[in-house]
């Protein structure tokens, strides 16, 4: 078994443990497990990099691992502020993502060389910022969902505040991802913007979150409207991430 796959199996077990352990145990060991999960996922990415001898975030398999790692970072960074239920749901999402990545067919996991179009230093900035922003938006959507289902007022307030914080940071990351993508496109294809479906959908996602921030800051929207907006943003993010590649033709034939 390859190192990357072994580390993924370990991450899978850790994420199951983190999803179900809080039901019976509430202690500091959970925090330690979360840190271990993050380290394990990061090591899986590094191991994959050594195995394929290139930057290891260019196809579906690799980007799912990266996305899971991004989510594990969110759980650690906001560890203090998060309630138990947030930890459980985020770890459940991490578990699902790792699960899907391990279940992918062999051709998706097969190592392949980097195509000439992707041979650029911009790949590092563009991919990491974009995928980290996806992780953030997913986490924010979970908080939005929790806001909608919970009845307790102080909890609602917390979910609302945290989702806003995470969305703000993710918006900066997505903006950076789009801008570095545009600069890279200028180097690779000779134009900043080609209205390729991936570009169009990332712009849609960006505008949805820009709208969220404007509505919140200047018109004081918050609570339910914001939470629903975050769920719409989640759908757009998901489509930008996966839908575009599997449903629409375009320049971004890699992920």
């Amino acid at each position: 078994m390859k190192w990357c796959e072994l580390l993924l199996e370990i991450s899978l077990i850790l994420s199951i443990a983190l999803t179900f352990l809080p039901l019976v145990y509430r202690g500091n060991a959970l925090k330690l497990l979360e840190i271990l999960l993050s380290i394990s996922l990061f090591s899986a990415i590094v191991a994959r990099g050594f195995e394929v001898k290139r930057f290891p975030v260019v196809n579906l398999y690799e980007s799912l691992i990266f996305l899971a790692w991004g989510l594990s970072l969110v759980t650690i960074i906001f560890s203090k502020n998060f309630l138990e239920i947030e930890h459980i749901l985020l770890n459940l999402l991490i578990f699902i993502i790792i699960g899907v990545s391990t279940l992918l067919p062999p051709w998706e996991k097969a190592p392949h060389y980097l195509i000439p179009a992707l041979k650029s230093y911009w790949l590092y900035f563009h991919v990491t910022t974009s995928f980290l922003s996806y992780s953030g938006f997913f986490a924010a959507a979970i908080l939005g969902f929790l806001y909608l289902i919970t009845e307790r007022k102080e909890r609602k307030k917390l979910f609302d505040k945290l989702s806003y914080q995470i969305t703000s940071i993710s918006f900066l990351l997505l903006s950076t991802g789009i801008l570095t993508g545009a600069v890279w496109a200028h180097y690779a294809w000779g134009r900043y913007w080609s209205w390729d479906p991936k570009e169009t959908w990332s712009l849609i996602t960006w505008i949805i979150y820009a709208g969220y921030l404007h509505a919140r800051i200047t018109r004081g929207w918050g609570g339910k409207k914001s939470a629903i907006w975050l769920l719409a943003g989640f759908l757009a993010t998901l489509f930008t991430f996966l839908g575009v590649n599997y449903l629409l033709p375009g320049l971004h034939s890699y992920l």
Binding site: P197, T200, W201, I204, I208, A210, G211, H214, V244, L248
Partner: peptide, 13 residues
Amino acid sequence: FVIVILLLILGGV
């Protein structure tokens, strides 16, 4: 924002 999103979705689909 809403109008642009709708137009972009049309153009993206």
